[in-house]
Simulated scan of single mutants.
Amino acid sequence: MQKAKESPFLSERGIIENGFSERLEEYKSSSTTSPLLMLGDALGVLKELPDSSIDCVVTSPPYWGKREYDNGGIGLESDYRDFVKDLCAIFLELKRVLKDDGSFWLNMGDSYKAKKLLGIPWRVAFELTDNQGWILRNSVIWNKVKSGMDNTKDRLGNVHENVFHFVKKNKYYYDADSIRSKSRQTKVVNGAVVSATGVSGVRYKRQIELSTALSDEEKLLAREALDSVLSDVAEGRLSDFRMVIRGQQRSTHSDKEKVSGRAKELRDKGFYFLKYHPKGSKPTDVWDIIPEDTQKRDAHFAPYPEDLCRIPILATCPEDGIVLDPFCGTGTTLLVAKQLNRKSIGIDISKQYLDMSEERSWSLL
């Protein structure tokens, strides 16, 4: 097997200031996972990148009116509406360079003006979905667990931010198994297979037999279905399950057949199962992640933590794919991409931040 060609510029530490498209093509054919760093404003650099060249975008842009980053840039607009407009112009260009099966993960914090919470993250999200054609798949709540000092006396403390997952098409790359938590194992008790939470099926069998809400035919079908599910548990095809039986347990979510398929199934069959994946459960849309400290990076103060990047990259960037952060700052997204053996591209207007990003990446060697 022929070894991938290494470009000379990739074997030395350095930041690219021009020729972005050509350097991207060289980078794609190389074997390195060290990030490709591009100096310039996000919109200008993105315009030079080719269509459908990026697999996944994970980013946290500067927040409006919060702080002044090195070398200026977005977030310093006098009116938050101009900030939303400028940001969305970048995201429209980003949509062009993202592959059709790619994903865009956007972390944004909100801002106040004249005591009004502006709702900036959702203003951006609605602009992207209503006017740019993005599909919003998840709105994740990042619970920062603890917050900084908050001396306000007339509102609650702010400890959450939004993380939006956007895609371009209905079908896109998503590896749910890569982010599942390890499931608890089944066990054998007195010769009977018992699920991870102690379900053996005995209680359900008794409920079926004693039911006055099921017909004889429905009882027969319920017993057969239960035996099949218990077999799946014994063979490791399921880690756990719940059985919902008409007249015994209430339908999950809703008991109205018009809005709940489960309620309709309960009405028509008399039972249904909730089956748990043998590889474990997926993460929910609330993430408890403590913000990053400065990690000895005195010139940059964003709380964007490494753990915020892991699920997006694992789930939506193939192992041979490329992750892009158009506001990479000191390179947290890029660092995590390298830890997960993915290529990455970072764009930033600040040479100082790119130098710091480079230092972090090379520290993994």
Rank of each mutant, 00 (worst) to 15 (best):
E127H: 11
R81I: 07
D55W: 10
G72S: 06
D130S: 15
G44F: 02
E77H: 06
S111V: 05
M38V: 06
E77I: 12
I54T: 09
D79E: 12
V97F: 04
S111W: 01
V58T: 05
L118E: 12
G40R: 07
E127N: 13
D55A: 08
W122L: 14
I141M: 15
V97A: 04
V97L: 07
L94E: 01
R137E: 14
N143P: 05
G73P: 00
Y63S: 11
D110L: 07
G44V: 01
L106Y: 01
D86N: 15
V58R: 05
L87F: 10
D86M: 06
C56E: 06
W142V: 08
Y69T: 03
E48K: 11
G65F: 02
D101I: 11
L106Q: 07
S103T: 04
I135D: 06
D70P: 00
L98S: 05
L46N: 03
S103V: 02
C56K: 03
L92K: 12
R81Q: 13
G109E: 11
G40K: 08
L46W: 00
D51V: 01
P50N: 02
Y63E: 08
K99P: 01
I54D: 10
S139C: 11
L117V: 09
P50C: 04
D110I: 09
D41R: 04
D41P: 00
Y112H: 12
Y63T: 06
Y80P: 00
K115V: 15
V58E: 00
S103F: 02
A42H: 01
D86H: 15
D70Y: 01
N131P: 00
P121K: 10
L98Y: 10
W122I: 13
D55G: 05
I90K: 05
I135C: 11
Q132N: 11
W134E: 03
V84S: 06
W64S: 06
R81G: 09
L76E: 02
K66D: 01
I90E: 00
G65Q: 01
L87H: 08
E127R: 15
F126N: 10
M108L: 15
L98Q: 03
G119N: 09
G72R: 04
Y63M: 09
D70E: 13
W105G: 02
V57C: 09
A114F: 11
G102D: 10
A125L: 06
I135S: 12
W64C: 04
E68G: 08
D130V: 10
L87W: 00
W134S: 11
E77M: 09
V58K: 06
